[in-house]
Nucleic acid binder design. Structure first.
Lengths: 230, 230
DNA sequence: TGCACCAATCTTGTATACAAGACTGTTGAG
DNA sequence: CTCAACAGTCTTGTATACAAGATTGGTGCA
């Protein structure tokens, strides 16, 4: 939760969530070591931790790369999120006392409001970041730290998927879903919230063009597009 | 999946699942390096990966230790498993084609049979190992590699919990639950299987004495008990 | 005796050195 | 001109060296 302790990992993850690091990007140990002002040792440690979390992978003696989920992996990641998030919401009604922690609904409502604003200002980076954060906040509200961590990593993965398969997923529609879920939660209709969450994640997944093989030259094309600086 | 690549991690995990490594056990880098015939570097890498998976933790300049889940963490780990495993089973009916992979039910049936035999022979180590493996196999049958990995680690955690809070959880009752789940799956009654799974995990959790603080001297007492070698 | 202080030892934390493989660009033959 | 072979460079893989903190055991004072 704090900044200094493992800032390399958090830094990479937030760069991914914010769309500043694209799938397939190479992360050289030496470069990162220089950026963070530490030796390669600590960079390697951070990379390995990120690897076990499924965020980056290593190609032997070539370097570390932000993962590029295949279509199969993409589907699996969304399925995993669907299973866990709907399971979480459905579990709420079995917890008579716990329910959601404190002012969770109020926080979520405020978050959805933030999403709305980001939609209007149109800042694409913070927009996708906020849309992903909603699910993490929801997990946090549920109060199970294990599930929160798991969903944080899965969300990072699906964010990468969205970047790869260029969904024109209506950000507005997503935010509407989020608002609907919060409303149902406020009413205590957990089963309904779970159902809507299921539809929501399916909708996002269906918005992706998983049939289209990811273009390995995407980055290159962008650079070579007319108007690029010499 | 293969043996040689990351055998240190797998070795530690299987030692935990098999009850050969107890919570709180210290894992010295130098010792492990000698055992595995490598330098401390690789041991450290393995430990860090296990740390991000929540299996071990490091105490600054004191060493690596197998985690000792607190009562709160124990409850959270069981809740996470319940959410995910029931969510998985409930999701089966929404997958018209997929359902369970191939001969999964047959495999699970065979596994339950193995459990029964282990119960009779009474080998305690392999027994707890098998009872945990059932859930991992079930996840594998579902076919989502992410969920399989997640549940593997969560199961390792709950195994540690069971060791700490000395549940007299009837192994026989657990195995009966497993058998019941397999039967319901074979009948295609996924909702029923999910319900039974929910009860099953609750039962195991309730069998634990989470109120009893774990005894930090357990290992010592055992060594000093009458009959121990000089 | 009881306790505070201190030195010796051990263990992890971090950096660095070197080995091994992958990629790049050049060169020379056909 | 095309392409195969090769040397050079770059990057990761692994080990080792040293620094920093923790623990332990001993010593001396009250």
């Amino acid at each position: 939760m704090t900044q200094p302790p493992d800032s390399i990992e958090d830094s990479v993850i937030s760069a991914i969530l914010g769309g500043r690091l694209r799938p397939g990007t190479r992360l050289g140990e030496a470069k990162l070591a220089e950026v963070y002002g530490v030796s390669r040792t600590r960079v390697r440690e951070a990379m390995m931790r990120l690897e076990t979390r499924g965020i980056v992978h290593v190609s032997a003696r070539r370097g570390w790369f932000v993962v590029e989920p295949s279509a199969t992996e993409a589907r699996a990641a969304f399925q995993a999120r669907r299973v866990i998030e709907t399971g979480m919401l459905r579990d709420l009604h079995t917890l008579p006392e716990h329910t959601l922690r404190g002012d969770a609904v109020a926080h979520l409502r405020a978050h959805v409001e933030e999403e709305r604003e980001a939609l209007h200002t149109g800042h694409v980076g913070s927009r996708t970041c906020l849309l992903g954060d909603f699910h993490i906040h929801l997990a946090h509200a549920f109060g199970n730290p294990f599930l929160t961590d798991i969903l944080r990593d899965l969300t990072a993965r699906t964010t990468l998927v969205s970047m790869l398969y260029q969904s024109d997923q209506d950000a507005a529609a997503s935010s509407d879903d989020h608002a609907g879920i919060v409303t149902l939660l406020a009413d205590g209709d957990y089963a309904g919230a779970a159902r809507l969450m299921d539809e929501h994640i399916r909708r996002v997944e269906d918005g992706l063009d998983l049939a289209a093989a990811p273009d390995p030259l995407a980055g290159l094309r962008e650079i070579l597009s007319p108007g690029a600086p010499a």
